[in-house]
Design a protein around this nucleic acid. Structure first.
Lengths: 215, 215
DNA sequence: CATATCTGGCAATAGCCATTACCAAACGCT
DNA sequence: AGCGTTTGGTAATGGCTATTGCCAGATATG
């Protein structure tokens, strides 16, 4: 009688139960991305997100603990997807010379992140200064990107094209440079093109890594 | 009889009327800076700001139109003060060689902005993604700082130590690098010292400006 | 075909907080 | 010293929105 209560894997409305949950989740994330980047995170109401997603508020709370949880997941996904893409591309180019790897890394990252202008907007504007938790998450990713860049720099150094030194701060600065250029790009789409940004960052990065020992 | 209503410059409680207003304003700004950077802008209530400032909510609305106006003014002041300081220092060093000017510029900016950790926190974390108006204000200042750096770079170029080219994007990236390093510094005070940041940015900047024509 | 069970939408609730009306007290002028 | 005016604190109000309880409809199974 009551022992069937724990089933839950039975198809219901043509689809599996957690399949529908997943679809709702995806629609909610899409709608949230849209609203967070148009009306802004603060002024985006849960009701509106649900309406846009075609999901009731009841179901919203079945998936997320609140608005901030949605923002967290979006932020996490954006970074994870970008990181995965970059890692995959760099794994392909294992035999390439270090400087070429950096070019590849940047192209992969930038083409991915600028495919949808809402993505950099969410990651670099809307998700800033929201809560201590999100701030920690953001710092974690920044550190991760920085150490990724630093390890590539060390590879260049091992190749003999750059001095052997601690690249942590340099990498952190480069992450900031990329972030700011993307933020500017996203704010006014007329000010500069993606290829210009890519070119600029590439030069900035190579100059910072292949640095003359001292001045 | 009623014509005296427009006076308002008569001393009231020992002090002039607009003098007291100015003092209240200052106290409110101080209290807001403190709360915005501790509990965060969003979760900082107007009542708390007033309590901390020793000012009633009534007087708050006499000075500011709302919480966001306070944040705007803080953001504006921080940038204006920093810009003034940098301009003053550079005016002194009019005869210095261009590369030395850049060193001076950075030292002045960094020593000023890091004197109070709350300042970079407010400018680079709390004031981000709050409203379209604040975002515009932020962009205005970023552009201003970037063009300032760009003009210094052109000075280096004119001196013959750097190629003559468009430095706008480079400067924008450098602003981002500075911002990110300060954001990291402010987040965890143990990760890096101000002097390390200063050193790093100096190198980053000089390398980016005194760039080999092409590679 | 009927019933027990699950699902999801609607609307009520409840808490929070900005904003302002009002009143009491302080102050300067005559 | 008294009065009219200005000041400032307090407390009420009003609106907004996140959150959840409840019910009607849908669904699979016996």
């Amino acid at each position: 009688m009551t022992e069937r209560a724990a089933t839950g894997a039975r198809p219901y409305r043509g689809k599996d139960i957690d399949q529908r949950r997943a679809e709702r989740r995806a629609r909610l994330l899409d709608a949230a991305l849209e609203l967070f980047t148009s009306t802004g995170y603060q002024h985006a109401g849960i009701a509106r997100i649900c309406t846009l997603a075609g999901v009731s508020t009841r179901n919203f709370y079945e998936e997320f603990s609140g608005k901030e949880a949605v923002l967290c997941e979006l932020h996490e996904r954006i970074n994870a997807v970008a990181m995965e893409r970059v890692t995959a591309v760099l794994d392909e180019a294992r035999e390439l010379e270090p400087a070429g790897r950096i070019r590849i890394l940047l192209d992969a990252f930038l083409s991915g992140i600028t495919a949808d202008p809402r993505v950099p907007r969410l990651a670099y504007v809307e998700a800033v200064g929201v809560s201590p938790a999100l701030e920690r998450q953001h710092r974690r990713w920044v550190e991760q990107w920085a150490s990724y860049i630093a390890s590539e720099a060390e590879r260049v150094a091992a190749y003999g094209q750059a001095p052997s030194r601690d690249y942590r701060l340099t990498a952190l600065g480069l992450v900031g440079a990329i972030t700011e250029l993307l933020r500017a790009w996203q704010a006014g789409s007329s000010s500069c093109s993606v290829s210009e940004i890519a070119e600029e960052i590439r030069e900035l990065m190579l100059d910072a890594i292949i640095r003359r020992p001292a001045q």
